[in-house]
Design a protein around this nucleic acid. Structure first.
Lengths: 277, 277
DNA sequence: CCTTGACCTTCCTGTAACAATAAGGTTTAT
DNA sequence: ATAAACCTTATTGTTACAGGAAGGTCAAGG
């Protein structure tokens, strides 16, 4: 192989790129062949041009676009290059952060389905010890229990917008829930204008998030959206009968949200939880 | 706002997506408006359709393509969905791994430039204590010192291909170096047919990488490719004069590779290092 | 000298997930 | 009635190439 005059195919093979890529870089003025036959248009490369190709690939690997790379290879100031690299580092760190969020979002989805499968088939009261959980709450004008499903949907839209406004990852818009505050509960008043999402334990995007206390809860599950009020009252009756004391807010957590199966709006499984002593 | 019949703009605003996005999802059969006026073509959405949009965004956030999402939303088997999510987790983990490699590649580039700036202007001998360093070595038919620059370029091409063949990240193709083994050195024979890249300390992709021993080195730097042989001999003379003993292989490390400034092939700064006692 | 096969050229289309714009029709409020 | 705000379809652009068509070029062998 003549090192001095490589055809595009040889140059491509030597550097493990495709011919198309080299043509593309030629067009984009990123890497011009050192010679082009004016008659045939054949491109001829020199092996030394690999250095520039290396640098292009390296910068590409660092996450730069071809335009950015072109700019960098033109600018001769090392300070500027260092500044650019530092900036690029920031971008990458952000990407990693995002991917980690995606990762956790997927893990949560998988957990969701696991929990969904383990649920008791019929709605019956059970006891559970739950850990403390951080939440982000949105307060709406709408009272959940006075509304049709569309009202709930609207509350969720508000919550979502609220999350987006605070730059909280949409991934969190997965496990949501509603709250009935203790005061209302004491009066058997089903009144809830607050929806929330669970935050990860290590999430620090919010200064002082509300925390649902850990401890003993009485719970009940269902997949019937319209049954919640009934179940809530049943749970309150149960608590009375057993002589327990309610020591915190009522929450209704969406365990699994499955808009897969049919065209009905929300197709979900939820778990009502009341902390008791 | 009539919740029952949202125009595309209202639906878009409610969910913080653009109208284009909704039209796109309509075309792609991902999310059809529940009603379309046959005369005007106006799309009308119901707020409850947000649930599906949520799911789409969630899966998108998990890194799925629209096609994959469509498929998932059609398939009703939770097992399959879980399997898919697990698979997706694998992809994400890979992406994170790659990005971390990019991250380190950038860090090394930044270090490179820092070192480049701190280099002594004239080639003079200095002493340095260097840590142990892992390397990946490629042995070529070419003897570096018998060749023009093009020969060196060819050695690098071989190294690069060798790296790619072993699925080692191209990011590693950054700090390279050449070796003269101790035996040759003892005979003042400048003979090197080995090039290498440095591996990160925590890199585990290679079973038993060669390790350059940590310890005291005598060094000299230059930016003149053709001066290496001279400097090498000068360094050997120095070692003799001072009565030091050579206790390992000679290495010539490329400190900074700057194909930015002009069209000359390699424009680099290197540091010759000989371990001594 | 001719042929064959490998190589090269330019030009065009396609990818993913929309964004942007143009040209034109609809709705709503004043 | 008219303007503002909204909607429609259709086309082009984005990134970094991949793939293919139609046709020219090169080196080796008969």
């Amino acid at each position: 192989m003549d090192i001095q005059k490589l055809t595009i195919g040889q140059m491509a093979e030597l550097n493990r790129v495709t011919r198309q890529t080299l043509r593309h870089y030629d067009m984009e003025e990123l890497l011009k062949p050192y010679d082009t036959d004016p008659e045939t248009g054949y491109r001829y490369y020199h092996v030394n041009q690999s250095a520039r190709l290396d640098m292009i690939q390296y910068l590409k690997f660092c996450g730069m676009s071809l335009d950015q790379i072109k700019e960098q290879l033109q600018c001769a100031d090392t300070n500027e290059i260092q500044h650019f690299l530092t900036q690029q580092l920031g971008f990458i760190d952000q990407s990693i952060l995002k991917l980690n969020q995606s990762r956790r979002a997927i893990l949560r989805a998988i957990e969701n389905y696991d929990r969904y499968k383990l649920l008791p088939q019929n709605p019956e009261v059970f006891h559970e010890r739950l850990p403390a959980r951080k939440i982000y709450t949105h307060t709406s004008q709408i009272n959940f229990f006075n509304q049709e499903e569309s009202g709930y949907e609207m509350m969720l839209r508000e919550l979502k917008q609220s999350l987006l406004d605070r730059n909280l990852p949409v991934g969190y818009f997965c496990n949501v829930g509603t709250i009935i505050r203790k005061e209302y509960l004491a009066r058997r008043e089903l009144c809830s204008n607050e929806v929330f999402v669970f935050l990860e334990d290590d999430f620090t995007g919010i200064e002082q998030p509300e925390v649902l206390p850990g401890g003993q809860y009485v719970c009940i599950c269902s997949d019937d959206f319209y049954q919640e009020a009934d179940l809530a009252l049943r749970l309150l009756d149960y608590i009375n009968e057993q002589g327990y004391t309610i020591i915190g807010d009522y929450i209704c957590e969406v365990i699994a949200d499955l808009p897969f199966f049919d065209k009905s709006p929300r197709n979900m499984v939820y778990k009502i939880q009341i902390p008791t002593l």
